[in-house]
Design a protein around this nucleic acid. Sequence first.
DNA 1: TGAAACATACCAACTGGTCGGTTTCGGAGT
DNA 2: ACTCCGAAACCGACCAGTTGGTATGTTTCA
Lengths: 205, 205
Amino acid sequence: MATRQAPAKEKLIGAAVKVVREKGFNATSVDDLCREAGVTKGAFFHHFPTKVDLGIAAAEAWKLHANELFGGAPFMAAEDPLDRILGYLEFRRDMLDGPIGEFTCLVGTMVQESYDTLPALREACQDSIWGHALTLVDDIEAARVRHGVTGDWTAESLALHTQGVLQGAFILAKAADDPRAARDTADHLIRYVRMLFNLAPETKE
Amino acid sequence: MATRQAPAKEKLIGAAVKVVREKGFNATSVDDLCREAGVTKGAFFHHFPTKVDLGIAAAEAWKLHANELFGGAPFMAAEDPLDRILGYLEFRRDMLDGPIGEFTCLVGTMVQESYDTLPALREACQDSIWGHALTLVDDIEAARVRHGVTGDWTAESLALHTQGVLQGAFILAKAADDPRAARDTADHLIRYVRMLFNLAPETKE
DNA sequence: TGAAACATACCAACTGGTCGGTTTCGGAGT
DNA sequence: ACTCCGAAACCGACCAGTTGGTATGTTTCA
């Protein structure tokens, strides 16, 4: 059933994810991408009509990758939806470590450069961010019911807020060339969600 | 004392602030900047050795601009430091309106593209973000004392958190090509700060 | 009058993208 | 099993436009 995917296409998408996260979309040339993927320019333009089209494909791959990574993580096995949400946020906080280019967000980077000039890429980035954020909505709703929490906010806005805070954390990490401020910001986010659900502050080990 | 500044230099900095916010640093060419500023290339390279140096100058100008704008805003006259903080955050939330290129952050945009490739620009962006964030620290400390609030967080981390959330809000606005999600995120931030200081949720009019 | 401010023509390197070609490969016919 | 075929995959030389930056001026002004 699954038609055997040509390797060059996948290698180019992988190269885009890696290099664009480091250098940004505009600063990454087609030659850079071909070199990183070990592929020629002919192969590039056989699979993608333009460089932007590779960016769009990378944004789609990024969404699939994220939903797979987090959807299959251990914390998702928790019975209480609130534990799944907090597990997700703690997982994301703990990821903020090591080389900056390895934990930051491809589509957050790309959308900064493209929102006004490359509408198709902007839309792909929105789809990627929203597509991941919305996977949290059901658990937030369920947690609200289970814990009897109301408040003047929607589950969707809280889901997007978590993504926004993480995007902001990436910027702080990039600016400082150090992930500490990013982790502090994630801690504030976790503290906020706990307070929304009337939980005591996270205990430190 | 103030040596009469040559207009070309200022015009170029102004042009950089405007165009880079729209198109990003890398996608903005020297010719773009000269055209926008109404200045020739000769003038450009007379005042700035390289394009990156203009970016750095723009980052510095941006910090001054921000601290002037917010430091002189009406909410700063409030007597209670907590009111000044909340006034600041509400002001920033209310700014999230109109064309996206007019409320987003220059240095947040630039640092995404430069953190790994242009260390001098990255540092200027950090200085700009941190330099603004730190103007909030004294009020946060004072509010903590005044309202008897402790908790497992530092004033500096909360100040940086506010900037991080705003940076994330800009990304959401750019991705959606719409500021609504950004305002929702700012509302969550305000709700968080109010909860930290044991205030009731913001009343809507 | 001398230095700083500004202008214009120019350049080598690089940009995204094209184009004519060769190689690879799954299946159809025998 | 073997050949053959057409399409898809892949190659690399090439191109016109743009890039950041330079060289050589002329103008402005204290």
